[in-house]
Protein backbone atom coordinates (compact mmCIF):
# COMPACT_ATOMS: atom_id res chain seq x y z
CA UNK A 1 0.00 0.00 0.00
CA UNK A 2 1.25 3.45 -0.87
CA UNK A 3 0.56 6.26 1.57
CA UNK A 4 1.14 9.99 1.40
CA UNK A 5 2.40 11.66 4.54
CA UNK A 6 1.84 15.38 5.05
CA UNK A 7 4.03 17.04 7.61
CA UNK A 8 5.08 20.34 9.13
CA UNK A 9 8.67 21.43 9.65
CA UNK A 10 9.03 24.39 11.98
CA UNK A 11 11.19 25.91 14.67
CA UNK A 12 14.81 24.75 14.87
CA UNK A 13 14.04 21.94 12.42
CA UNK A 14 14.18 24.42 9.55
CA UNK A 15 17.96 24.15 9.80
CA UNK A 16 17.91 20.45 8.93
CA UNK A 17 18.49 19.95 5.21
CA UNK A 18 16.39 17.88 2.86
CA UNK A 19 18.60 14.76 2.79
CA UNK A 20 18.84 14.71 6.56
CA UNK A 21 15.05 15.03 6.82
CA UNK A 22 14.75 11.94 4.62
CA UNK A 23 17.10 10.06 6.93
CA UNK A 24 15.23 11.43 9.91
CA UNK A 25 11.92 10.03 8.64
CA UNK A 26 13.45 6.67 7.83
CA UNK A 27 14.58 6.39 11.43
CA UNK A 28 11.22 7.66 12.70
CA UNK A 29 9.44 4.92 10.75
CA UNK A 30 11.74 2.29 12.24
CA UNK A 31 11.08 3.54 15.75
CA UNK A 32 7.34 3.83 15.22
CA UNK A 33 6.61 0.18 14.54
CA UNK A 34 5.03 1.10 11.19
CA UNK A 35 5.83 -1.64 8.68
CA UNK A 36 7.59 -0.13 5.72
CA UNK A 37 8.49 -1.90 2.48
CA UNK A 38 12.17 -2.25 1.70
CA UNK A 39 14.23 -2.62 -1.44
CA UNK A 40 16.20 -5.81 -1.99
CA UNK A 41 19.96 -6.30 -1.71
CA UNK A 42 22.74 -6.00 0.85
CA UNK A 43 21.65 -2.59 2.09
CA UNK A 44 17.89 -2.62 1.99
CA UNK A 45 16.36 0.84 2.13
CA UNK A 46 12.88 2.15 2.60
CA UNK A 47 10.94 3.04 -0.51
CA UNK A 48 10.20 6.69 0.13
CA UNK A 49 9.84 9.67 -2.18
CA UNK A 50 9.60 13.32 -1.21
CA UNK A 51 7.44 15.77 -3.15
CA UNK A 52 9.56 18.90 -3.38
CA UNK A 53 12.79 19.52 -1.48
CA UNK A 54 12.57 22.42 0.97
CA UNK A 55 15.56 24.71 1.29
CA UNK A 56 17.43 25.02 4.58
CA UNK A 57 15.99 27.87 6.65
CA UNK A 58 12.46 27.63 5.23
CA UNK A 59 9.62 26.48 7.48
CA UNK A 60 6.60 24.61 6.19
CA UNK A 61 3.18 23.32 7.15
CA UNK A 62 2.66 21.55 3.84
CA UNK A 63 5.43 19.03 3.12
CA UNK A 64 4.83 15.63 1.59
CA UNK A 65 6.41 12.28 1.00
CA UNK A 66 5.02 9.01 -0.28
CA UNK A 67 6.05 5.65 1.05
CA UNK A 68 5.23 1.97 0.62
CA UNK A 69 3.77 0.16 3.59
CA UNK A 70 3.07 -3.43 4.47
CA UNK A 71 0.13 -4.27 6.67
CA UNK A 72 -2.95 -2.27 7.41
CA UNK A 73 -3.10 0.54 9.92
CA UNK A 74 -5.68 3.29 9.87
CA UNK A 75 -4.79 6.87 8.97
CA UNK A 76 -5.38 7.86 12.57
CA UNK A 77 -3.08 5.20 13.95
CA UNK A 78 -0.35 5.92 11.42
CA UNK A 79 -0.52 9.63 12.24
CA UNK A 80 -0.35 8.92 15.96
CA UNK A 81 2.55 6.51 15.59
CA UNK A 82 4.48 9.06 13.57
CA UNK A 83 3.78 11.87 15.99
CA UNK A 84 4.95 9.80 18.94
CA UNK A 85 8.39 9.85 17.26
CA UNK A 86 8.69 13.46 16.15
CA UNK A 87 11.35 15.90 17.32
CA UNK A 88 10.22 19.31 18.57
CA UNK A 89 9.20 21.28 15.46
CA UNK A 90 8.13 18.30 13.35
CA UNK A 91 4.48 17.20 13.11
CA UNK A 92 2.76 14.70 10.89
CA UNK A 93 -0.51 16.29 9.75
CA UNK A 94 -2.08 13.44 7.82
CA UNK A 95 -1.42 10.02 6.35
CA UNK A 96 -3.57 8.94 3.41
CA UNK A 97 -3.66 6.09 0.96
CA UNK A 98 -2.82 7.02 -2.63
CA UNK A 99 -3.01 4.97 -5.82
CA UNK A 100 0.07 2.96 -6.79
CA UNK A 101 2.01 3.67 -9.94
CA UNK A 102 4.43 6.18 -11.32
CA UNK A 103 1.79 8.63 -12.53
CA UNK A 104 0.63 9.26 -8.99
CA UNK A 105 4.10 9.85 -7.53
CA UNK A 106 4.13 12.89 -5.27
CA UNK A 107 7.23 14.29 -6.93
CA UNK A 108 5.83 14.17 -10.47
CA UNK A 109 2.51 15.68 -9.41
CA UNK A 110 3.89 18.89 -7.94
CA UNK A 111 2.61 21.90 -9.88
CA UNK A 112 2.29 24.80 -7.43
CA UNK A 113 2.89 25.84 -3.85
CA UNK A 114 1.76 28.51 -1.40
CA UNK A 115 4.39 30.60 0.33
CA UNK A 116 4.53 33.48 2.73
CA UNK A 117 7.54 35.71 2.84
CA UNK A 118 7.56 37.53 6.18
CA UNK A 119 9.82 40.53 6.52
CA UNK A 120 11.99 40.49 9.61
CA UNK A 121 11.79 43.37 12.03
CA UNK A 122 13.08 46.58 10.53
CA UNK A 123 13.89 44.83 7.28
CA UNK A 124 10.58 45.36 5.45
CA UNK A 125 10.64 47.64 2.41
CA UNK A 126 10.28 51.29 3.34
CA UNK A 127 7.22 53.30 2.44
CA UNK A 128 3.73 52.19 1.64
CA UNK A 129 4.76 48.88 0.07
CA UNK A 130 1.49 47.09 0.92
CA UNK A 131 -0.32 49.20 -1.64
CA UNK A 132 2.22 48.58 -4.37
CA UNK A 133 1.71 44.83 -4.56
CA UNK A 134 -1.27 45.03 -6.89
CA UNK A 135 0.49 47.32 -9.31
CA UNK A 136 3.58 45.12 -9.22
CA UNK A 137 1.50 42.09 -10.14
CA UNK A 138 -0.43 43.86 -12.86
CA UNK A 139 2.71 44.38 -14.92
CA UNK A 140 2.69 42.49 -18.18
CA UNK A 141 6.16 41.18 -17.59
CA UNK A 142 8.30 40.84 -14.52
CA UNK A 143 11.84 40.43 -15.71
CA UNK A 144 14.48 39.04 -13.40
CA UNK A 145 18.05 37.98 -13.95
CA UNK A 146 18.05 34.26 -13.57
CA UNK A 147 20.89 31.83 -13.51
CA UNK A 148 20.11 28.17 -13.95
CA UNK A 149 22.28 25.16 -14.68
CA UNK A 150 21.51 25.55 -18.35
CA UNK A 151 21.38 29.27 -18.97
CA UNK A 152 21.67 32.74 -17.62
CA UNK A 153 19.71 35.81 -18.59
CA UNK A 154 16.57 37.90 -18.21
CA UNK A 155 13.47 35.82 -17.68
CA UNK A 156 9.88 36.76 -17.30
CA UNK A 157 8.56 35.26 -14.09
CA UNK A 158 5.10 36.83 -14.27
CA UNK A 159 3.40 33.74 -15.81
CA UNK A 160 4.56 31.63 -12.88
CA UNK A 161 3.11 33.85 -10.20
CA UNK A 162 -0.44 32.59 -9.73
CA UNK A 163 -1.34 34.76 -6.75
CA UNK A 164 0.38 37.50 -4.81
CA UNK A 165 -0.89 39.76 -2.07
CA UNK A 166 0.28 41.67 0.96
CA UNK A 167 -0.51 39.91 4.18
CA UNK A 168 0.49 41.23 7.55
CA UNK A 169 4.16 42.04 7.51
CA UNK A 170 4.89 40.15 4.34
CA UNK A 171 3.76 38.73 1.05
CA UNK A 172 1.71 35.66 0.46
CA UNK A 173 1.93 34.02 -2.91
CA UNK A 174 1.09 30.99 -4.98
CA UNK A 175 3.84 30.04 -7.39
CA UNK A 176 4.54 27.46 -10.04
CA UNK A 177 6.60 24.72 -8.46
CA UNK A 178 8.06 21.41 -9.60
CA UNK A 179 10.13 20.14 -12.44
CA UNK A 180 8.67 22.29 -15.24
CA UNK A 181 8.75 25.84 -13.86
CA UNK A 182 10.07 26.09 -10.36
CA UNK A 183 9.81 29.67 -9.15
CA UNK A 184 11.34 30.45 -5.80
CA UNK A 185 9.55 32.89 -3.49
CA UNK A 186 12.81 34.69 -2.76
CA UNK A 187 13.04 35.65 -6.41
CA UNK A 188 9.57 37.20 -6.31
CA UNK A 189 10.41 39.13 -3.16
CA UNK A 190 13.63 40.42 -4.72
CA UNK A 191 11.76 41.51 -7.85
CA UNK A 192 9.25 43.34 -5.67
CA UNK A 193 12.01 45.26 -3.89
CA UNK A 194 13.49 46.14 -7.23
CA UNK A 195 10.11 47.34 -8.44
CA UNK A 196 9.98 49.61 -5.38
CA UNK A 197 13.44 50.86 -6.26
CA UNK A 198 14.88 49.32 -3.11
CA UNK A 199 17.53 46.78 -2.25
CA UNK A 200 16.71 44.08 0.34
CA UNK A 201 19.07 43.75 3.29
CA UNK A 202 20.63 40.33 3.84
CA UNK A 203 18.28 37.94 5.70
CA UNK A 204 15.41 40.37 5.19
CA UNK A 205 12.72 37.71 5.37
CA UNK A 206 11.60 34.33 6.62
CA UNK A 207 10.03 32.06 4.01
CA UNK A 208 7.29 29.62 4.89
CA UNK A 209 5.69 27.05 2.60
CA UNK A 210 2.02 26.51 3.33
CA UNK A 211 0.86 23.91 0.83
CA UNK A 212 1.81 21.97 -2.27
CA UNK A 213 -0.62 21.37 -5.15
CA UNK A 214 -1.10 19.09 -8.09
CA UNK A 215 -2.77 20.39 -11.26
CA UNK A 216 -5.77 18.43 -12.47
CA UNK A 217 -6.68 21.04 -15.07
CA UNK A 218 -6.45 20.89 -18.86
CA UNK A 219 -5.69 23.34 -21.68
CA UNK A 220 -8.60 25.49 -20.52
CA UNK A 221 -7.04 26.24 -17.19
CA UNK A 222 -5.43 25.14 -13.99
CA UNK A 223 -7.26 23.18 -11.39
CA UNK A 224 -5.03 23.06 -8.34
CA UNK A 225 -5.76 20.52 -5.66
CA UNK A 226 -3.66 19.77 -2.59
CA UNK A 227 -1.52 16.64 -2.73
CA UNK A 228 -3.30 15.54 0.43
CA UNK A 229 -6.73 15.63 -1.20
CA UNK A 230 -5.61 13.06 -3.79
CA UNK A 231 -5.42 10.47 -1.06
CA UNK A 232 -8.14 8.81 0.88
CA UNK A 233 -8.44 8.33 4.59
CA UNK A 234 -7.76 4.78 5.71
CA UNK A 235 -10.44 3.76 8.18
Amino acid sequence: MKVRVKFAKEGAMKFIGHLDIMRYFQKAVRRSGIHASFSEGFSPHMIMSFAAPLGVGITSTGEYFDMELNGSMSSAELTDRFNAQMADGMRVLSVRKVPDGKASKAMSLVAAADYTVTFREEKAPSGDWQHQVEAFLSQEQILVWRKTKRSEGEKDIRPWIYKLEASGNGLSMQLSTGSVHNLKPELVAEAFYKYLGQEPQPFAWQVHRGEIYADLGDENGRKLVTLESLGEIIE
Partner: peptide
Protein backbone atom coordinates in the same frame (compact mmCIF):
# COMPACT_ATOMS: atom_id res chain seq x y z
CA UNK B 1 9.73 26.19 21.52
CA UNK B 2 13.30 26.67 22.81
CA UNK B 3 15.06 29.87 21.97
CA UNK B 4 18.30 29.13 20.15
CA UNK B 5 21.54 30.71 21.28
CA UNK B 6 22.43 31.69 17.73
CA UNK B 7 20.36 33.95 15.48
CA UNK B 8 18.86 32.72 12.22
CA UNK B 9 21.31 34.92 10.41
CA UNK B 10 24.30 33.20 12.00
CA UNK B 11 22.86 29.73 11.61
CA UNK B 12 22.18 30.41 7.93
CA UNK B 13 25.75 31.62 7.46
CA UNK B 14 27.66 28.72 8.99
CA UNK B 15 28.30 25.30 7.54
CA UNK B 16 25.95 22.59 8.93
CA UNK B 17 23.81 24.61 11.37
CA UNK B 18 22.44 21.31 12.71
CA UNK B 19 25.67 21.07 14.73
CA UNK B 20 24.45 23.80 17.05
CA UNK B 21 20.70 23.44 17.55
CA UNK B 22 20.38 20.32 19.74
CA UNK B 23 16.80 18.97 19.69
CA UNK B 24 17.90 15.51 18.50
CA UNK B 25 15.93 12.33 19.14
CA UNK B 26 16.65 11.04 22.68
Amino acid sequence: MRKLALSDEILMTVEKPARYIGNEIN
